[in-house]
Structure formats: structure tokens, C-alpha cells
Design a protein around this nucleic acid. Structure first.
Length: 356
DNA sequence: ACAGGCGTCCGAT
DNA sequence: CTAACGATCGGACGCCTGT
């Protein structure tokens, strides 16, 4: 079978770039878009930051307090999520023009299978026109990785950021991976990297020396196989549209509390919010999951399954209320509370173009 | 043996 | 000296239970 051509399009420092685009005063100075918890002294995390901020060691995912310490003059902007989502939808529409075989993977990333649309020799120009289309329609830059599958495309897109691209030819896959540490592979996070390290595996080359059986024994069927194949640059997973499989919201309490009333107060409004999202996509749910983040940052969940699909807000409110009471009788101290619905189905006759 | 339900962990942006 | 810290999503596994 002929080699596929897969692109990974990754918007550059997305939230912060949108803010820069809409306020000239921000360009050239360090900027971070922060997701605040709504609690006292602006607790929160960095959602995205520009390259000026990165020079000070600020990174996305970092606690805002640390970011401020590293860069006292950092301009911190509260996230405007709805706006970013709207911009995202426009960007994705532009990108979809380059291939209907698209998989949006988050608000600022998508894979495209462009096998039938271009060829490896012509790819440079194809990527150029995609980047230009995004820039001209949205005044935003992105970075693009290209390769014979999703894992290679994904790794390639990060190499020449921002506003860059990288093409990995099928014949170059082996060499491209050989210089990488195991932790750079998709799906290898902190825990997996530690465990690999303990096994003497630091690089992708080291990983290739492990047999498939050893990896499956250590990491389970799915993950073991994934490590085995991705260290060799092999990935047959198709680029296919995703349906959202859960809708959820999480909210921090004003302060940690063991009191039922405090948790219920923080929880109020979440069922309506979640069902609004669900209704927008014309779907109904069967499972309700409550999420509690405790004072020690550990998480507890409670799930209940309905006998039949529903989208009724009173059912959701009544059931979650019972579940909260049940959980709080265990004497927990709660920091954040959340609600998520899943087991989704489209109600009769309803049809949506794209649920993402 | 299998499916569904439930709780938890891990990883990503 | 260290740890500090959000919201949202998807995937997987282990355990239990009913059939």
C-alpha cells in the first residue's frame, strides 16, 4: 500500500496569539493567558504564553504564581474561552478546505490526511498554501508537521515552532526517531518516563531493544503495543473525525470545605451549563459522573447510569444531588467539584454536521 | 466467558 | 529548599456482578 501523507496542524501559542492579534500593545512584551480558579489571590494556571514569556521560563500548564515569579513583568490575561472557541471553529473550517479527512484533536490542533490531495515532492507548496490560508483568513500563524502517519506528523509539527513546518519523508522516519528521547513520544508522560527509566530505557533506540512481550508485561496490552510500534515509527491509526464522548464542567470551591452546603452551592449551575452544551449538539446522555477533587489534590468519582437516555435537567439535578449527599457523608474535604455526562446518543431524527 | 457498570490512573492541550 | 496549580477531554485497566 502506498504511503499516506498525514499533516498535523498546530496553532502557535493559541490563546495568547489571539490576544496579541487583538491588542497591538501586547506584541513584544511577555504575555500569558491564565485560567483562574476564581478563588482568592488569583490562583490558576497558564493556558498559553507567547515566546517573549517563554524566554523567562514561563510554560503552559505552569502555576500562575510560579510564572509571575519567573517573570515579574509578565502580562497576565484572564482566558476568554468562548472567544477562543469561536476562533477555533473558523480556523478548523479553513483547514478543512484542505482535506475532508480531518481529525480535530483539541481546540488548536488537527490532523489531516492529504494522501489524495498532494504528493511528497509537492508537499512544501501544499503546506505553504495551508499556512497562508490560515494567516490570511484569521491573522494567526500555525506550525505544520508532515509524515506518513499521525505520530510522526505530531512530533514533526513541534520542531520548527512557531510559524514553521517540517516534513519527514517515509525514508527518513527511522533517523528522525533515532535522535529522540523516549519521553518525546506521544503517550509517554511523567509516570511512563519514570518507569521506562527504571528499566534502563531513556531513548527511542533503547526502547526498540525491548521486546513486545516485555513492554506488554510492563505496561499492559494497549500501551505496551503502542510503545513498541511508535518507537519504530509505525502507526496505522486512521485520520478520522471524532465525536465528543463526554461533556463536563468542573468548578473550584471558594475555599476547601467538608460541608455539604458548600459543595452544593459550588455545584449549582453546572447541570444547566452541561446540558446547554449537550443540547447544542442535539444529544442525550445515560451516564452521570460526579468528580470531586479533594484537599490533597487526589480525585474521586461517582458514576450512575440511567435506565434510558435523557436530556432532562431535573433528572440530572435530582440524581446528582443524591450522589453529592452520598459522597459528602463520607467526611471528605472538597476543593473542586465537577459534573460530566457520557453514554451519549443522538435523539431521534436529530443530526449534526460535526459535534466537535 | 462476556458485557456493563464503576472507580481510578495516565496523558494531552 | 521545595512546592506551588485549571479545566476539559480521551483511553485504558482492574474489579465486581449479572446472565
Amino acid at each position: 500500500m502506498a504511503d499516506r501523507i498525514v499533516l498535523h496542524v498546530d496553532m502557535d501559542y493559541f490563546f495568547a496569539q489571539i490576544e496579541e492579534r487583538e491588542d497591538r500593545a501586547l506584541s513584544g512584551i511577555p504575555v500569558a493567558v491564565c485560567i483562574f480558579s476564581g478563588r482568592e489571590n488569583s490562583l490558576g494556571a497558564v493556558g498559553a504564553c507567547n515566546y517573549e514569556a517563554r524566554r523567562y521560563g514561563v510554560k503552559s500548564g505552569m502555576a500562575c504564581s510560579i510564572a509571575k515569579k519567573k517573570c515579574p513583568e509578565l502580562r497576565m490575561i484572564a482566558a476568554r474561552k468562548d472567544h477562543y472557541l469561536a476562533v477555533s471553529e473558523s480556523v478548523m473550517e479553513t483547514i478543512r478546505g484542505f482535506s475532508e479527512q480531518m481529525e480535530q484533536v483539541s481546540v488548536d490542533e488537527a490532523y489531516l490526511d492529504v494522501s489524495g490531495k498532494t504528493t511528497y515532492p509537492a508537499l512544501e507548496g501544499y503546506i505553504g498554501s495551508l499556512k497562508r490560508a490560515v494567516l490570511e483568513s484569521q491573522r494567526l500563524t500555525c506550525s505544520v508537521g508532515a509524515g506518513p502517519n499521525k505520530i510522526i506528523a505530531k512530533m514533526a509539527s513541534s520542531i520548527n515552532k512557531p510559524d514553521g513546518h517540517m516534513i519527514v519523508l517515509p525514508s527518513e522516519v527511522e533517523g528522525f526517531l533515532s535522535g529522540k528521547s523516549a519521553s518525546e513520544l506521544f503517550g509517554v508522560g511523567e509516570k511512563t518516563a519514570e518507569r521506562l527509566d527504571a528499566m534502563g530505557v531513556k531513548t527511542v533506540i533503547d526502547l526498540r531493544r525491548m521486546s513486545r512481550e516485555e513492554l506488554v508485561n510492563a505496561f499492559g496490552n494497549a500501551k505496551g503495543a503502542m510503545l513498541y510500534w511508535s518507537s519504530r515509527g509505525i502507526d496505522d491509526s486512521p485520520v478520522s473525525p471524532r465525536k465528543k464522548e463526554q461533556y463536563g464542567r468542573l468548578r473550584s470551591l471558594p475555599r476547601e470545605s467538608p460541608l455539604l452546603a458548600d459543595v452544593k452551592l459550588a455545584f449549582s449551575g453546572l447541570p444547566e451549563d452541561v446540558l446547554r452544551l449537550l443540547a447544542r449538539d442535539g444529544r442525550s446522555f445515560r451516564k452521570i459522573t460526579l468528580i470531586f477533587v479533594l484537599n490533597d489534590m487526589t480525585m474521586r468519582t461517582k458514576t450512575r447510569t440511567m435506565a434510558s437516555p435523557t436530556s432532562d435537567v431535573n433528572t440530572l439535578k435530582k440524581t446528582s444531588d443524591d450522589m453529592i449527599s452520598e459522597f459528602m457523608s463520607e467526611g471528605r474535604i472538597v476543593r473542586r467539584v465537577g459534573l460530566s455526562v457520557s453514554g451519549l446518543s443522538a435523539p431521534t431524527g436529530q443530526r449534526t454536521l460535526f459535534d466537535f
